[in-house]
Amino acid sequence: METVIRGLAIYFSLLVIVRLSGRRTLAQMTPFDLVIILVISETTQQAMVGEDFSITASVLLILTLFTADIALSYVKRWWPYSARLIDGVATVLVVNGKFEEEAMRGCRLERRDVLEAARSQQGIDTVKDIKFAILEVDGNISIVKNSSAAG
């Protein structure tokens, strides 16, 4: 019983903390972000397993995590609004060559983050050539080029 409770407690705690920390935290992964993820995984592993290193506990824990994930996917399917709360929604960062400053602040993004995505995806070197920059739910920034842009 304790294994299942520990697994569920950590799963939902992590879900809430990661969601509340903001999407930027896990999207633009710097080397330091990688360190944070490694530390989180190590910390949560100890909290989930406790002192029980048995194969039974390990299998139960894996089943708990997968079952929780499956259950959550059904909740999101049956109640679409929950999906928007849990996963977030796509955020428009640039419209017709102009930054949406409120969205940039809300997502804790810098202009250089968007311009970097524009350069790497579309070879665009100025925001004026961006029709849309959208921070997707998975954390990537999608760039849609202005039809008037060269190339």
């Binding site: 928007r84 709360l85 977030g88 929604v89 796509a90 955020t91 428009v92 419209v95 017709n96 409120e102 969205a103 809300g106 029709k131 849309f132 959208i134 849609v144």
Partner: peptide
């Protein structure tokens, strides 16, 4: 409510986003 139509599949969720932020 943006000056141009957003790409298909992208909705104007600014109200929800402001709450989340």
């Amino acid at each position: 409510k943006y000056s141009v139509a957003l790409p298909e599949g992208v909705e104007d969720d600014r109200k929800l986003q402001r709450k989340v932020w």
